Amino acid sequence: MKTQKKRSDCPVSFSLEAFGDKWSLLIVRDLMLKKKCTYGELAKSDEKIATNILAARLLSLEENGIIQKLEHPDSKAKVLYQLTQKGMDLIPIIVEINLWAEKYTDIPEKRKELLAQMNADKEGFIKNALKELELNL
């Protein structure tokens, strides 16, 4: 893993350098919800990330130890991306961001079920998500 040069000793600043750009947490979100993904699946996210940016963010997340590449079982031309333990430790942050957004924005109907699960039992939701991801490690 590449040693990251820090702008300052502030934990918030250091964290934002690792995953604070416009796209990285969306990639983590997709890997959290889908467990393992290919490049093509990530490229098809609702946010329409440009392929060059997706490639750069995947590389950055990998260099920061947040994701890892795995061999695809069906194709040598493809790889699977998966959260590492360091990446899975971001799940509570993703949950809190979702709940914060629900409080301050209009949420589409298709997202409300997931938010209802988070609201009903936030700790249980996080534990279940982590358990499912750990089974895939």
Rank of each mutant, 00 (worst) to 15 (best):
M1G: 14
K6T: 13
K6M: 06
R7G: 12
S8Q: 03
D9K: 09
P11R: 00
P11S: 01
V12R: 12
L16N: 09
E17C: 03
E17Q: 15
A18G: 04
G20F: 15
D21G: 10
D21W: 11
K22G: 10
K22W: 14
W23G: 01
S24G: 04
V28D: 05
R29F: 08
L31H: 10
L31G: 02
L33D: 14
K34Y: 11
K35S: 10
K35Y: 05
T38H: 03
E41Y: 03
K44W: 00
K44L: 08
S45Q: 09
S45M: 13
E47D: 12
K48E: 13
A50M: 06
A50N: 08
A50E: 14
L54N: 05
L54V: 05
L54E: 12
A55M: 08
A55G: 10
E62T: 05
E62K: 02
N64V: 01
I66W: 02
I66D: 05
I67D: 09
Q68I: 00
E71F: 08
H72A: 12
S75F: 11
K78F: 08
L80V: 15
L80N: 03
T84I: 04
Q85R: 06
G87V: 12
M88F: 00
I91P: 02
P92A: 00
I93F: 04
L99A: 07
E102Q: 07
K103M: 11
K110N: 13
K110E: 14
K110G: 01
K110F: 13
K110I: 13
R111L: 13
K112H: 14
E113K: 09
L115D: 03
A116Q: 10
M118A: 11
M118Q: 15
N119R: 15
D121A: 04
E123I: 12
G124Q: 01
A129E: 01
L133S: 02
L133Q: 06
E134L: 01
L137F: 09
